[in-house]
Every structure is written in structure tokens, then in C-alpha cells.
């Protein structure tokens, strides 16, 4: 029983991590049909910015809990800056080109940003453990967990709910759904697709940066963290269905909980869990669990 609960908690924490890492990718894909490899850079820049701001914040005498604001500030700064710059200065020139050219352009941008990251922050790692230390630990079924990681579950929940409500209940969300369904007709109907695209890309970028910014206190923020995230986010999005937010949620839960079970029961196969689920889903339902239907145009 204890093990079961622990697996569930570990699984939920890891699922939330996966969701936070994947949601930005899926938002951008859902609306713009762009697989954004630069997502990995958003994550990495978010983490570096967060570590820097947290470090700077705790140099001051301001109240300790304010450190959390630094995390969200970092995500906003990075997301808005890179979102606007990339979309306005690069991607909009490529919308008329093949999808894979755009993917490759984001891949190229990722390579460029990897080195920009090194130019700004160097190779030494950054630590920002204060927020994690601040929240302390809690015992669940006689096992100690750190509270900070548990808050990740809450954050993922809030983000998921916020995006869902935003999409289904607001006017803006309905416009977005129209664009997702048919870009050209939406434009003909008077929706400003350009603005929708920029806004979506910025939101996706903020999500990517927020993933990194929130994870930063639990890790060593060092070179190479962006690459790992791309593959992980990509796998979750493929499993859940590209561009579907409920898909990303289910995909994260599926992978996260299976992985936690593997770690506790069969640690040898941990590496394969994500690939195995992906292979299984691909074999049975290659478009992903929650893929939106595609119209066939003649």
C-alpha cells in the first residue's frame, strides 16, 4: 500500500514536470502547425534567467517568499522577448514554406541559441535552491517528500485548467479554435491571424520558459539542459496527439506514472518506458491518443 501511494505521488510529480515541459510545444503546434525545436532553448533560457533572478533576489533583504515571483518574472521576460523576436523576425517569413523547412529553421535557431546561452552565462552551473529550501519537506506514508516538487503538481493543474478555460470559455479562445480548424477561412472571416499567431507563439514560449524557470531550483542549471527537454517533450506530445492539450495531459500522466512504477518495480527498464509507450501508441493509434481529426482536401 505504501509503495502504491509513493508510486502515485512520484508519478504525479514527474507527470507534472512532463506536462510543464510539453505544454508549450503542443500549444504552438496546435495552432500554428509548427514543431518548435527552439522550445528547448526557451526552457533553458527560462531556467538560466530564473536562477539568475533568484540569485539576485536573495542578495537583497526582501521577504523570502518573494523569490517565487522571480520565477514567474523570468518566464515572462524570456517568453515575451524570444516569442516576439522569433515570431516577428524569423518565422513570419517562413509561413508560406513547407512545414519541415520551418522545423529545420527552429532547429537552426536552437543551435544558435545554445551558443548564445554559453556566451551570456558561460559554462559554470547556476544554483537557485533557495525556494526549494524555503518550503521544506513533508511526510507522506512515512516517506519524506520535498514540498517544492509537490507544488509542481498544483502549477501543472493551474496551467492546464487555465488553458482549457481560456480556449473554451473566452472569445479569444474561440477565435483560436477557428484558426486551428481552418486558417484561411478564419482570415476570410476577418480574424486577424497574424495577431493570433504572434500571441500563440508568445504564450507557447512563456510556457516553455516557465517549465525551465520552475524546475531551476531543483536542478543544476548547466549547459545541455535544453536538448534533453526537446526529446522528452516531443515524446509526450506524440503520445498524447500533436497539438492537443488534453492529449499532453494524458500523455504526461501515462508516461509519468508508468515511469514511477518502473523505477520502483523494474528499474532496469526505466529508460524504455517512454519509448515503449510511444511505440505502443504509434502502433495502435499513430496520430496520438487525442489527435484532432484532419480534413482531407481535394
Amino acid at each position: 500500500m505504501q509503495e502504491l501511494i509513493v508510486i502515485l505521488v512520484d508519478g504525479l510529480v514527474f507527470s507534472s514536470y512532463l506536462f510543464m515541459v510539453a505544454v508549450g510545444l503542443t500549444v504552438i503546434f496546435g495552432v500554428m502547425k509548427i514543431l518548435n525545436v527552439t522550445h528547448g532553448s526557451f526552457y533553458a533560457f527560462g531556467a538560466y534567467m530564473s536562477a539568475t533572478l533568484i540569485g539576485a533576489y536573495y542578495e537583497t533583504d526582501l521577504p523570502e517568499f518573494g523569490g517565487f515571483l522571480a520565477i514567474f518574472a523570468a518566464a515572462l521576460i524570456i517568453g515575451v522577448f524570444f516569442g516576439v523576436v522569433l515570431e516577428r523576425c524569423l518565422l513570419r517569413f517562413l509561413y508560406h514554406r513547407d512545414e519541415h523547412i520551418i522545423v529545420l529553421a527552429t532547429f537552426a535557431m536552437f543551435l544558435v541559441l545554445e551558443d548564445v546561452l554559453l556566451m551570456i552565462w558561460g559554462t559554470d552551473p547556476y544554483y537557485a535552491f533557495e525556494p526549494m529550501a524555503l518550503l521544506g519537506s513533508v511526510d507522506i506514508v512515512e516517506l519524506t517528500f520535498d514540498v517544492y516538487s509537490l507544488t509542481l503538481i498544483g502549477l501543472a493543474g493551474v496551467v492546464c485548467l487555465g488553458l482549457w478555460l481560456g480556449l473554451t470559455k473566452t472569445k479569444w479562445g474561440k477565435l483560436l479554435l477557428a484558426v486551428i480548424f481552418d486558417r484561411e477561412i478564419s482570415q476570410a472571416m476577418g480574424i486577424n491571424v497574424t495577431v493570433v499567431f504572434t500571441a500563440t507563439f508568445v504564450i507557447g514560449a512563456i510556457m516553455g520558459a516557465l517549465g525551465g524557470a520552475y524546475i531551476a531550483p531543483t536542478i543544476s542549471v548547466s549547459p545541455g539542459i535544453g536538448v534533453e527537454v526537446i526529446v522528452l517533450a516531443f515524446a509526450v506530445v506524440v503520445i498524447g496527439g500533436m497539438g492537443s492539450i488534453p492529449g499532453a495531459l494524458i500523455g504526461s500522466l501515462l508516461v509519468g506514472i508508468s515511469r514511477a512504477a518502473a523505477v520502483h518495480k523494474f528499474p532496469e527498464i526505466e529508460l524504455f518506458v517512454i519509448y515503449a509507450i510511444m511505440a505502443l501508441v504509434l502502433a495502435i493509434r499513430p496520430e496520438g491518443l487525442f489527435a484532432p481529426a484532419q480534413a482531407r482536401k481535394i
Binding site: A105, L111, D115
Partner: peptide, 14 residues
């Protein structure tokens, strides 16, 4: 900065 150059050349070509 070799990745920068590689990525930059790719972008320029695209």
C-alpha cells in the same frame, strides 16, 4: 561557437 555558425548558415540558406 561552432553550433552558432552551423545554425546561422542553415538559417541563412533557408
Amino acid at each position: 561557437v561552432w553550433q552558432f555558425i552551423l545554425g546561422g548558415s542553415l538559417l541563412a540558406i533557408i
